[in-house]
Design a protein around this nucleic acid. Structure first.
Length: 292
DNA sequence: TTTCATGTTCAGCA
DNA sequence: GTGCTGAACATGAA
């Protein structure tokens, strides 16, 4: 279920389970999920390295990898001139991920002496990429194959190239409210635009608009300061709440729309039937009563 | 059997 | 340039 909160959950999981381990094998099981690189290059690039940090930007996760051997050399040889050479050799390489519509990353624990090879019981269904450490591994799963994995030497450059806007949890309020005033599209369309704000998808956009009491069809420029301030707050609250509830909609507060976001779903405030429309081609649930 | 789906990108048109 | 619509991608679930 990948919007920003789900990406953050995956990131934390990777951070807790997949850092510092030597990459023994990289198995690309379906190269349709690769983002402009071929399978052999990805495998060659990551093998023998290890992941050392996991960061998230919007819906994307970046896994930093470092060269094991060069690092060991650096520890042994503290002379500056050699370090410079080594630094050059150990240029950072980041695995980039976008989970698409149905992507996820599972961390695998594998008993001694066993490996998560093709069709083994340790390999989850719909695994498209498998990274094997010594006694553990990680599997990128994605039934619909809309997600993409790739490599970059710089997440900052990557973010610039993709024209991603600021991360939804780090965006500056001034930039947000001024930006809204400049847009003539509907407020929902603007919130979904990853170039304006990165991280909100169809479900959480409905939720933040519900929490802020704003009609999804309202023109962005017509959202006044009071409302854009409330909206900005809702974005922070909703995303943080979703992250702490592990993105389990049943654990969200009673006042949230998401658990009721289905046909015949009712507004958690007054029990009236929610309205379903299309905005920007996306199914949109809202309560006309509370989102004037 | 048909329709819809948490995302992104692109063509075509107003 | 802006924005909207529809299609494409691929597959499971209702």
């Amino acid at each position: 279920m990948p919007e920003l909160p789900e990406a953050e959950i995956v990131r934390r999981n990777l951070e807790a389970n997949c850092l510092g381990k030597s990459i023994a094998e990289v198995v690309v099981k379906d190269d349709r999920i690769l983002d402009n690189i071929d399978a052999a290059f990805l495998t060659k690039s990551l093998k023998g390295r290890r992941f050392t940090s996991a960061i998230r930007y919007g819906k994307r996760i970046f896994l930093k990898s470092e060269d094991l051997q060069v690092e060991n050399k650096q520890v042994k040889d503290e002379r500056a001139e050699n370090q410079q050479i080594n630094n050059h050799q150990s240029k950072d390489l980041w695995l980039t991920t976008h989970l698409g519509m149905t992507g996820w990353i599972d961390c695998l624990n594998i008993p001694d002496g066993e490996r998560p090879i093709r069709d083994s019981p340790y390999e989850p269904r719909y695994t498209r990429l498998l990274i094997i450490f010594d006694h553990s591994g990680m599997a990128y799963t994605d039934p619909r194959l809309f997600g993409r994995l790739g490599l970059t030497e710089s997440p900052d450059e990557f973010i610039k190239q993709r024209r991603l806007g600021p991360d939804a949890l780090k965006m500056d309020f001034d930039e947000f409210s001024k930006g809204l005033r400049r847009k003539t599209a509907s407020i929902k369309t603007v919130l979904l635009d990853q170039g304006f704000i990165a991280g909100l998808g169809n479900l959480y956009t409905d939720e933040v608009l519900f929490q802020a009491g704003i009609n999804p069809q309202a023109k962005s420029y017509a959202v006044n300061d009071t409302r854009s301030s409330r909206l900005f707050q809702s974005i922070q609250e909703v995303l943080n709440t979703a992250i702490s509830s592990g993105s389990d909609f049943n654990l969200l507060p009673e006042s949230y729309l998401l658990p009721h976001r289905h046909r015949n779903g009712r507004c958690p405030k007054d029990g009236s039937i929610l309205e379903v429309i299309k905005v920007n081609g996306r199914t949109t649930y809202f309560c006309p009563e509370h989102q004037g």
